[in-house]
């Protein structure tokens, strides 16, 4: 994957963020027309506040929060991708941070800054089991009550039952895992 050139606006934003957070910004990359900025997990909340409130950045819309489970590297097992969009500047930036594997992986909630993050964080919690500190109502949102395990983790089986066809229709469906 070749690195694409940064546009002027993106360069400015990157510079502002680097000045403000210094060591917290660990790198950046650009694929096609999309800039990703890698940060350490401890500056996430301050960065979100900065991005929303400062005029230089002015990211008024938090588009999405996505969690990815990289099961092969426990040090950085859970990658969280925060998708910020600025309507005035018309620029989209993906902020990426990682959470190491542990009993209760956790990260600071940005719900106080972006109220729209409420359900997005609850969904990430529901699907990946990442706890968001400071979230006012962190409950499972989608899976049934009493569900055990975190469905979007890679070690969670996709299904429990072998499909029934005509050759095994008389037998009860076998349990895969």
């Amino acid at each position: 994957m070749g690195q694409a050139e940064l546009t002027k606006v993106e360069e400015e934003i990157l510079q502002v963020l680097q000045e403000q957070f210094g060591e917290g910004i660990t790198g950046h990359s650009k694929f096609a027309d999309q800039l990703s900025i890698y940060i350490t997990d401890d500056i996430l909340f301050e960065l979100a506040r900065f991005m929303k409130e400062e005029d230089q950045t002015d990211f008024d819309l938090l588009s999405d929060i996505c969690g990815v489970d990289w099961i092969d590297c426990p040090e950085q097992r859970f990658e969280l991708v925060y998708n910020f969009y600025s309507i005035n500047k018309n620029v989209r930036i993906l902020i990426r941070t990682t959470v190491p594997d542990s009993e209760t992986p956790s990260i600071r909630s940005i719900q106080p800054v972006y109220p729209g993050a409420d359900w997005m964080e609850r969904e990430v919690y529901d699907m990946l089991g990442i706890e968001f500190e400071g979230h006012p109502d962190l409950q499972r949102i989608i899976t049934p009550e009493g569900m055990e395990g975190w469905p979007h983790r890679k070690d969670f089986p996709l299904t429990y039952e072998a499909p029934q066809f005509s050759h095994n229709k008389d037998n009860p469906p076998e349990i895969i895992k």
Binding site: S63, D64, C66, V68, V81, G116, W119, M120, E123, H152
Partner: peptide, 15 residues
Amino acid sequence: PYRMRVRPPSFINLQ
């Protein structure tokens, strides 16, 4: 796909 995430407009608008 290693991961497919959908940003569902209905889900977020329902907030």
